[in-house]
Design a binder for these strands. Structure first.
Lengths: 202, 202
DNA sequence: AAAATTAGATACATGAGTGTAGCTAATACT
DNA sequence: AGTATTAGCTACACTCATGTATCTAATTTT
């Protein structure tokens, strides 16, 4: 039995990371409903006994992997470019949505047997202290500086950008182009805060 | 062996309908990834042999069931109530989204192994000749009557209402209230077509 | 070096689901 | 009534996944 340890054994964090990466990949390919210990083990090149020593079922592996993701990057508004900052925030959202963690969260939220497992704590852990949607951070920053009346920043308005991006991702499965993101900003978000094409110039 | 035919045998359309109903219910409970012939058969109180005589796998049963759904009700705009007609259109969308067919379509679209099976023909079959989103029909009708400039009715604008409703359904799992639908119309759709609170009155 | 830990490997029993074959009984058609 | 069709039933062989037990070898710790 000469070659059964071609690669050194992984231990501790290295092993855990490999398993976390594996479950995030596996769920993208098969969805939550078809996630198995066998599938995760195969992808991580680790036996099920190793998985069962730590986790009792595949969804637990998945939630643990999400728990250990780095928090999502938060938009950092500049000084004077509402349009650009909104496009950038939406681009961050798209990047996150297409990340392994983002896709895994989406898979859980759309699985009838798992959505309830997405606890508030885990959600906050993934998103850290973001204070709401990607675009909300930007919008609040500019409202605070008087670019538009703060009372226009309602929950509906804060959701517009991400809602449109989400729907685009669902409808086409493809990421919106930068032109499409700009169109969302100009045609939907800015009019809602009174800065549409017919609005008085600030 | 006295009671093995307590209920008469179903044949033809009656049997098919029972199976269609069963698969639409089953997919709501378990999702596409866990859909099985066994599960459908149990729910329809019919053996798998009966299913296999007609269909080769559970997703085929599901797609066939969708194929035989009645087309979605289309909004019928009135003469002079843009706001009301938009709220009504969104309510129709919510009703459809929460219907067995609507939920089944959503389940397919969000399953990594099934989305590609939602062919264009089936999509059109489910939605009949709707000419676009629920709200687009209403918006086009009123643009044609000069209530707002037709060039503002872009693909982004046509999508705003349904995008926000979709996101709400995903985020909370619950249908939006009528107040929430009205807020979507007033805070997002109307501003985008130049009829927001700061717009000139038509 | 010895001891401790555990990753990796193997085996097993069980259950769920698949797909098929064959049969009988119920129902429709002639 | 006789014939044809097929729903419903049972059985089977097979695959995959589950969860567990046990063991050895690799690696870390003492």
């Amino acid at each position: 039995m000469g070659d059964h340890s071609a690669r050194p054994r992984r231990r501790g964090e290295e092993l855990i990371k490999a398993i976390h990466d594996a479950v995030l990949e596996e769920v993208l390919e098969v969805g939550v409903g078809r996630l198995t210990m066998d599938g995760i083990g195969r992808r991580a090149a680790t036996p099920r006994t190793t998985l069962y020593r730590r986790w009792s079922d595949p969804v637990e592996v998945l939630l643990d992997a999400l728990h250990h993701q780095h928090p999502v990057e938060e938009p950092t508004p500049g000084a004077d470019d509402l349009h650009g900052d909104l496009v950038h925030a939406l681009r961050l959202m798209v990047e996150w949505a297409l990340s392994p963690a983002g896709r895994a969260v989406a898979a859980i939220l759309t699985d009838p047997r798992s959505a309830a497992l997405m606890s508030e704590a885990l959600f906050e852990r993934v998103f850290a202290d973001r204070g709401g949607t990607f675009t909300r951070t930007v919008l609040r920053y500019y409202a605070d500086r008087g670019c538009f009346p703060a009372e226009l920043l309602t929950p509906v308005v804060a959701d517009i950008g991400e809602a449109l991006v989400t729907k685009r991702l669902i409808d086409t499965g493809a990421p919106p182009t930068d032109e499409e993101l700009a169109a969302i900003v100009e045609q939907a978000i800015l009019p809602a805060i009174g800065l549409g094409p017919r609005a008085p110039r600030p």
